[in-house]
């Protein structure tokens, strides 16, 4: 066990935990931030995507000891009222079916649009390839990203 100070959604949080603990479980079990989802635990599905600084990372592969002073943003910290343009686009396109993977999809999409505000269809497909949606809402996910990009949000 060791003590860590991590910046989550703009707040410093002190957590005493085994240094190997992935941020996924720190968020879910210790901080009760359950918007970040467990899907595979081996960085294959993208359900646990959060932002480390400006980058989308798989929190199941990010031990707390590797976070350092970089800021972590989770779906709960993406916007105050769920009104980030990407979230709004998700609502407008009525993207989700079961909804389980969508926080990870949104976190991946927001980091991507920040680095590439005007992506081509192929670039969106490549950027979102690591996020599985078992219900098959891929066409709506792509549409929502295109519509958020067109609203010049990034």
């Amino acid at each position: 066990m060791a003590k860590f100070n991590v910046n989550i959604n703009g707040k410093q949080r002190e957590i005493e935990v085994d240094p190997t603990t992935p941020m996924l479980w720190v968020l879910r079990d210790h901080l009760k931030l359950v918007g970040t989802k467990y899907g595979c635990g081996v960085a294959q599905c993208g359900a646990c995507t959060v932002h480390l600084g400006d980058n989308a990372v798989r929190s199941c592969q990010l031990p707390i000891s590797a976070v350092g002073d970089k800021e972590i943003t989770t779906i709960e910290g993406l916007s105050e009222h769920g009104d980030h343009p990407v979230q709004k686009a998700w609502i407008e396109e009525d993207v989700y079916q079961c909804g389980y993977c969508q926080a990870g999809q949104i976190m991946n999409a927001t980091a991507f649009l920040k680095s590439n505000p005007n992506p081509t269809e192929g670039e969106i497909e490549a950027a979102m390839h690591g996020n599985i949606c078992r219900c098959g809402t891929y066409t709506r996910i792509k549409k929502a990203i295109q519509s958020a990009a067109n609203s010049k949000i990034a």
Binding site: L33, V34, G35, T36, T74, I75, E76, G82, Q87, W90, I91, D94, Y96, G99, Q102, A103, I106
Partner: peptide, 8 residues
């Protein structure tokens, strides 16, 4: 449930 889903 849309608003809850997109806010995690």
């Amino acid at each position: 449930d849309g608003p809850d889903i997109i806010q995690g």
